[in-house]
Amino acid sequence: MEFNMILGAWVSVFFTLAIFSLLYKDSFIFKLAENIYIGVSLGYVGSIALYQALKPLVWHKLFDSEGSKSIKGSEQIIIVLACIGGLLLFARFIPTLQWLSRWTMAFLIGYTAGIVIPSAIDSFLLAQVSKTIAPISFSQESISSGATFQQLLILVGVISVLLYFFFSSEQKGVLIGTSKIALVLIIIYLGGLYGATVMGRLSLLYGRISDLVTFSGSSYFYASFVLLVLFILFFFITSSKKQPEQHE
């Protein structure tokens, strides 16, 4: 196995155990890992922005001889204007020029709203409504496959939940019945979301444990076992040193 793979495994195990050490107690090792993680993440995102965005989209099109020939002069002007707009965002850090950043923000908000709102109405509202108001099928096939029950459930669910959040009239009479149905459905939905979240967190834990198990093998020089023992020793020594102070 290559040296860099083994080194990578040891680094990975160290930081995994360092972050997990918070479950036992907060320590210098956890804080070290936390700060390094933030620094590395920022550095990584910065380098991706540099090499995957600024270099191909700005530098290549403006200054590279081959790249600048492949686009029209008007396109280059647009790129320069976009760069100026981007730089104006940093004007927020200069109190006297702070107002300049609002121009770019106004453009971004207007542009995004223009793109997003019409398509959101189409994809998220009209598509959902048209499916909800589609005629319910009572064919033998639909009934036996459970499609009819599903359609009825969706219909009852949508109507009752909409009425539950209809605050313009007092919840009494028919509205009490529908509100109770809505409440049950909302609770089931929230329970489902909670269950899914637990499953998601366990998947993340499995990912880390799976790596720890892989790196505990002889090909990685028992990285997980060695570092686990060192961590236990570290906590044992630091806690035994502090004990006399606590008694005092």
Binding site: Q128, K131, G200
Partner: peptide, 26 residues
């Protein structure tokens, strides 16, 4: 997708906007 957002995407399966979805590790 991830388990956290999977339930919210089920609506797009019903409308046919999503032809299929694999939710998390399960």
């Amino acid at each position: 997708t991830t388990a956290v957002v999977e339930p919210t995407y089920q609506q797009y399966i019903s409308t046919g906007q999503l032809k299929g979805m694999v939710g998390a590790m399960r």
